[in-house]
Design a protein around this nucleic acid. Structure first.
Lengths: 148, 148
DNA sequence: TTAAGTGCAAATATTTTGCTGTCAC
DNA sequence: GTGACAGCAAAATATTTGCACTTAA
């Protein structure tokens, strides 16, 4: 079977629809941009990419959609140690929390899932009797390429 | 020996002076506020407290001092998952990296030093051949008090 | 003395809100 | 048909910059 080339429904769209949330042309475009981005985008970048597909899309709609997705727990908001500016970066919420490792020289971002981190979260839950919903790990430094 | 009640030199002031950085009346006040705060303050809170001591202190000077301290690696900038607004919070850089655990209901912040986290950083250094300079862990959820 | 720092006003960057008209269901 | 959503303009929030005056060393 082949995937349709027009508006293939992504996970985000399916999730929102399943939760009875209305799907609009604009939302579909924004969701598609977030899901198909190979990297973390900020609001301005999401707007720029969405605009190419649907010229009329407004900045405000991007922010409102991001807020909706955050509230639904479908995307996570990152700062990436503010390598570029004071804005936020977004990614679809992954199955497992992972670390973000940002090179402060070249801005490249690596990700890491780690059993140690799972144990660390367990420690927090136990020691503070704390119910974790978000976990953000942002590590900054210099990558091997930039050290050469 | 008793500590002088006027302008006791804190660690930050000593560090800056040792590095040949000029010490002004305003800086001394701001450094004092940051060091003696029992909790993480944002720029506006630092300004408010500093103003009480030295009424003429300007918002801009607070930002400029924070930038100086960041550049010198003497304070760390946190987001605390943006429990209140989109600003940043500051703390003197501690000897060891620690975790920040923020209750998304009541906004209380706990801290944790953990051997597991030290191991996790080691893993990152090794697996990515990465030279870590900053490590920020921000965990959000609901504390035990708020769950009751 | 003089380079660095400060205050003030204004600019910039990021995100939100009010309102009116439109569209998904 | 109607309540949720979009666009536009304007406001709110957070931070930085240009410039003239002041001060630490």
């Amino acid at each position: 079977m082949q995937t349709s080339s027009l508006a293939p429904e992504g996970k985000l769209e399916l999730e929102l629809t399943a939760r009875g949330i209305r799907m609009t042309r604009q939302r579909r475009v924004i969701l598609g941009v977030i899901e198909s981005a190979g990297k973390h985008l900020d609001a301005a970048q999401i707007l720029r990419r969405a605009s190419r597909i649907e010229a009329s899309i407004n900045r405000v709609t991007v922010y409102r959609t991001l807020n909706l997705l955050k509230k639904q727990g479908l995307v996570d908001e990152l700062d990436l140690l503010h390598v570029r500016g004071d804005g936020h970066y977004y990614e679809p919420r992954p199955a497992r929390h992972h670390l973000h490792i940002t090179c402060l020289r070249c801005g490249s971002v690596s990700e890491l899932e780690s059993a140690l981190f799972e144990r660390l979260k367990g420690q927090v839950q136990r020691e503070f009797d704390f119910d974790i919903t978000i976990a953000r790990v942002e590590i900054g430094g210099v990558c091997s390429k930039c050290r050469k």
